[in-house]
Design a protein around this nucleic acid. Structure first.
Lengths: 136, 136
DNA sequence: CCGCGAGTTGACGTTAACGTAAATCGCCGA
DNA sequence: TCGGCGATTTACGTTAACGTCAACTCGCGG
């Protein structure tokens, strides 16, 4: 029997390598309220919770959300178990917004793919034309 | 018989209303090489080609592409019919990059949806708990 | 005791993508 | 002829999201 798996921790440079961001970025996210690492002396110690938050944050960024938006969701989520009804409704509102956003993005992706297909088609035609001229 | 449909044109304010962006934004995109309107005197005149480009640009933006990235695609696309092989291959490269990007975004969207579902579930639970306490 | 590497703390710099404001121009209707 | 409206130019301002750099501290191996 293995004992309760030791709650792993991470240094800032470890996290920074895991996600390919700089330590500066990680500290900046903390300053913006997205991470809340422990301290040992003045040194930051990150737990899995922080790692997950960082992952979510970066994913949110790739999807075009601002750090402020991401923070609002995280804050409301953290206050969730004992949140008041107003906060909870606000969170549901936010979630609906994000969903709508995702849906539009999916549509945008679909359209963009079509355009890429079109461009690629023309591009390959042009290449073929070049080849024929060279050979003919 | 209607004559050949008159090639429609747009003023800057017209375009700005159509896409809900400011005239400043449209001029800025021109300055960045994304639009090339005609001029009558000093006034800009936009054709359908410009409208389409603007639409593509805004879609690109919603998908997180920078104006510089978008411009590169547009430039290569414009030089397409008589582009040399090097340009054409470069364009294919770019297209592949964009595709990869879109694919990752789709995956991000999928994961994000799961998280939203999870958060929403907990949120509704919390609301129910509140309701019961109020009633019991 | 010394230096080294990892980490921290300010503080100022930078880039993208516009916003904003002031001065000017051209046309059109009263 | 004059005023107003729409458009333009120029230039400086702003915001988000970090980058960069300098000065410091801390723990550790030699």
């Amino acid at each position: 029997m293995t004992p309760d798996s030791a709650p792993r921790t991470y240094s800032i440079s470890e996290l920074s390598r895991m996600f390919e961001v700089t330590p500066r970025t990680i500290r900046f996210y903390e300053q913006e309220g997205l991470l809340e690492p422990q301290r040992r002396g003045q040194t930051r110690i990150y737990h899995d919770k922080d790692r997950v938050r960082l992952k979510l944050t970066l994913r949110g960024k790739r999807l075009g959300f601002s750090l402020a938006e991401i923070r609002e969701v995280i804050e409301l989520y953290d206050a969730l178990p004992d949140g008041n009804a107003r906060q909870l409704r606000r969170l549901l509102e936010l979630l609906a917004e994000k969903r709508a956003n995702l849906q539009r993005q999916e549509e945008d992706i679909r359209l963009m793919r079509k355009e890429l297909d079109d461009v690629e088609g023309r591009c390959r035609e042009a290449l073929l034309a070049l080849a024929e001229n060279a050979e003919g």
